[in-house]
Amino acid sequence: MGEKSSTDMIHGNLDLLVLSALADERKYGYLIQQSLAAASAGMVHVQAGTLYPLLHRLEAEKLVRSSWDHSTGRKRKWYELTPAGRKRLTHQADQWQQYAECMSRMLRGALGSALSPAGGTL
């Protein structure tokens, strides 16, 4: 399992990651991209061509809402979570937490006996 694969797994859950980037405060597209890169220590770089259609889709699904303002000295479109988006984020983050803990518990054994063909602790 190389780095590419784990990146792929992460990119399969971009909706959730983008929602999580908006958990604390509203952000515009570029900030979302940067904060995902920072939070994942550079593992997640969402291409702009992927990010914006995704944001528009989340907005169409009423999980985020947007507004324009010039507060940074430039006209920008800011995104924030809707109550439905926050609910989705909480729910999915919770499911992921359980999934990750379960996988990690189960795989710890497998990793320990990775060299044995039977591979099990049964």
């Binding site: 515009y28 570029y30 702009a48 914006y52 430039r74 006209k75 920008r76 479109k77």
Partner: peptide, 11 residues
């Protein structure tokens, strides 16, 4: 609106 949004990102 799409143009404005993407322009800000590009800049």
């Amino acid at each position: 609106a799409v143009e404005d949004e993407l322009r800000a990102h590009l800049e």
